[in-house]
């Protein structure tokens, strides 16, 4: 359910990763994304899993929190695995009956794809959502992309929009629950019936949610005006981003770790061939 999503829910536990400069984390995040998509060797994948575990440990958020972020994606991961399993027919055929054909390459490919998605989610939560407040993420984006201001790209405004969107996710998810309860009390049923019927049923939630979001937006704009908001010019920050030596060290160490994973993968790949 929407309310169970931990997306955008900051985990308020202190750790080295929490204290790391968000720009460093953002860059590391991109590096790890690339690494995840480059690694194909099973041994390297195991190494990646170990590194991820170390990162989880560094982030001090606990395995349960990570599980909560991974759990909602599992059906999708399973779906990807199944699709790959049945559509890839290259390699040695292990099983062939009617239109079902499973090959060894299909299996390894399917597992790899499923793993990638899960790693992706875990890395996102470790570097971004769980350890970095949305406002810091948008600060980091604003800072990293500030050169775009030269071509008049509204960097500050985009960052502000993003942080407000993230700020309102918990509020709107609570509201969604309330509206669904109210409609269910009037006989609405969101759990049974076919796909189309369910989508249609959600109109009773979406319309009120939209209307209230517009009202909220109007109120919020007024409140921001009253608090003297006038865009990014001349704004100061309570917690300005400051690069410390520790940030650079963590950045370099973790980046090298990712690089070594990729290199290991390449070497292992060559050895096997």
């Amino acid at each position: 359910m929407i309310g169970d999503m931990t997306l955008g829910r900051y985990s308020n536990t202190d750790s080295i990763l929490h204290r790391t400069d968000p720009r460093v984390k953002l860059i590391l995040y991109v590096i790890y994304l690339v690494a995840i998509f480059m690694i194909t060797d099973p041994l390297a994948l195991i190494a990646l899993a170990i590194v991820t575990l170390v990162l989880i440990f560094m982030s001090n958020t606990g395995l349960k929190m990570i599980w909560l972020t991974v759990k909602p994606v599992l059906p999708l991961a399973l779906f990807i695995v199944v699709i790959n399993l049945f559509t890839i027919r290259t390699g040695r055929v292990l099983f062939n009956k009617g239109f079902i054909c499973i090959s060894d390459e299909g299996i390894s490919r399917a597992v790899l794809m499923g793993m990638r998605l899960i790693f992706l989610i875990m890395i996102t939560s470790i570097f971004l959502t769980l350890t970095t407040t949305p406002l810091k993420i948008s600060d980091a984006l604003e800072s990293l992309f500030s050169w775009l201001k030269v071509i008049r790209f509204p960097v500050h405004e985009m960052a502000m929009m993003m942080s407000i969107a993230l700020r309102f996710i918990p509020t709107l998810s609570d509201e969604t629950k309330k509206i669904m309860n109210a409609q269910m009390s009037r006989g609405a049923d969101y759990d049974t019936g076919g796909f189309i019927k369910r989508i249609k049923g959600y109109i009773t939630v979406l319309v009120p949610l939209f209307v209230s979001s517009f009202n909220r937006a109007e109120d919020l704009a007024c409140a921001m005006d009253a608090r003297c908001y006038r865009g990014g010019v001349g704004r100061t920050k309570l917690n300005p981003l400051k690069i410390r030596r520790a940030d650079i060290v963590i950045g370099i160490v973790l980046a090298l770790l990712a690089a070594s994973l990729v290199i290991t993968d390449r070497i292992l790949g060559q050895v096997l061939i």
């Binding site: 900051y10 407040t133 949305p134 406002l135 942080s163 407000i164 993230l166 700020r167 509020t171 009202n215 909220r216 109120d219 919020l220 409140a223 921001m224 608090r227 309570l238 917690n239």
Partner: peptide, 13 residues
């Protein structure tokens, strides 16, 4: 409305 005037994600922000 308490919800519609909070901009910051954390209290101090």
């Amino acid at each position: 409305n308490p919800d519609n005037q909070i901009v910051g994600t954390t209290v101090e922000e």
